[in-house]
């Protein structure tokens, strides 16, 4: 398995064995990400961050990952100053940027932008989120969080909660969980269910997928609750939004009969789906999940730029 020079566009581009290798490498990065050890593995390497859509945590965690390994970053953090605003194609922008550094991270509002960038770039391209499409490093850190909590990614019962229609993180995560053999339970408002073609794809690759309309029932046997934000703009009627979002609120009362090891994940930012009263319970995995973004991205950068991890 060679990672050096590869693009990271979609989680589908990676086999189960490759994902396992990235997660193993990520675990080795944790002491470095915590600042307990130092590394110069990426000394002299430059990562170009082209964030053509606003993002803070993805961009900052890539910057932190690069800095922890001794490398540096050049960054477009504001699309308003980029030459795309002057009418340049993304293809040309990427072609130019790829000559400035050793790899590019792209965040872009259009689906498929990272695939196009990979065609234009002579250097590896990492998809930092393209529209409602893929966000593979988010999926990898979600998997790292679940694996850290349970020691495995197989045989778990993972409930996906909230907006399963538009939430880009859940489609990729469901694909990855399916190839590891975990059961997927879908719990969403009727208008925000998993698209039929995504569900069909999951079943094609052998996933066990069930639907549970009642969150309190779904929670009972769950190992993981993966919660996503339900966005107000998906609803025409404010009252309808309030009703739906209220019924997908995770709090202590809901988890009263949950398994003791139940882990609650959320890609953050949250807007009320997960009650702050859970933050200090053993169920809260979401802040750990956010931190694990750094070692996962360190591992990936080291593998893509040098072919090995320090």
């Amino acid at each position: 398995m060679g990672f050096k020079g590869r693009d990271v566009i979609s989680i589908r581009d990676f086999s189960r064995e490759e994902i396992e290798e990235i997660l193993r490498a990520s675990r080795r990065m944790i002491p470095l990400a915590e600042g307990k050890k130092t590394s110069h593995a990426l000394d002299g390497k430059i990562l170009t961050l082209a964030f053509l859509e606003p993002s803070t945590r993805t961009r900052l965690s890539f910057e932190a990952a690069m800095a922890r390994l001794g490398g540096s970053c050049v960054t477009i953090a504001d699309p308003a100053v980029s030459s795309l605003r002057k009418g340049e194609t993304l293809h040309d922008t990427i072609r130019v940027l790829s000559s400035y550094g050793d790899a590019i991270v792209l965040r872009h509002p259009n689906e498929g932008a990272a695939r196009l960038a990979a065609q234009a770039s002579a250097k590896p391209v990492i998809n930092g989120g393209d529209g409602a499409g893929q966000h593979p490093t988010q999926t990898l850190l979600d998997l790292a969080t679940i694996e850290e909590a349970f020691g495995t990614l197989s045989g778990l019962r993972v409930v996906l909660v909230g907006d399963l229609k538009y939430g880009r993180t859940v489609h990729s995560l469901a694909h990855a969980l399916a190839i590891f053999g975990s059961e997927i339970v879908l719990c969403a408002p009727p208008t925000l269910g998993l698209p039929a073609e995504v569900r069909e794809h999951l079943e094609t690759i052998g996933a066990k997928v069930t639907v549970e309309d009642e969150l309190s029932r779904a929670v009972r046997d769950a190992d993981v609750l993966y919660v996503t934000r339900i966005q107000r703009e998906r609803f025409g009627d404010e009252r309808e939004f309030a009703k739906v979002s209220g019924s997908y609120r995770i709090d202590r009362a809901l988890l009263a009969n949950a398994k003791p090891k139940l882990a609650v994940l959320h890609p953050l930012p949250r807007t009320g789906e997960v009650a702050p009263e859970l933050d200090d319970t053993p169920h809260a995995a979401y802040f750990r999940q956010a931190f694990l973004g750094v070692p996962v991205r360190m591992a990936l950068l080291a593998l893509l730029l040098t072919g090995k991890v320090p």
Binding site: S10, T89, E111, G112
Partner: peptide, 27 residues
């Protein structure tokens, strides 16, 4: 979008035909 690329689809099923866009992965 205004980019110098042609559309491209992988054939994921033949009867009936289902395609997947190589860019956005839409079926």
């Amino acid at each position: 979008q205004r980019e110098p690329v042609e559309s491209e689809f992988d054939v994921v099923r033949r009867r009936p035909v289902v395609l997947r866009c190589i860019y956005c992965e839409r079926l």
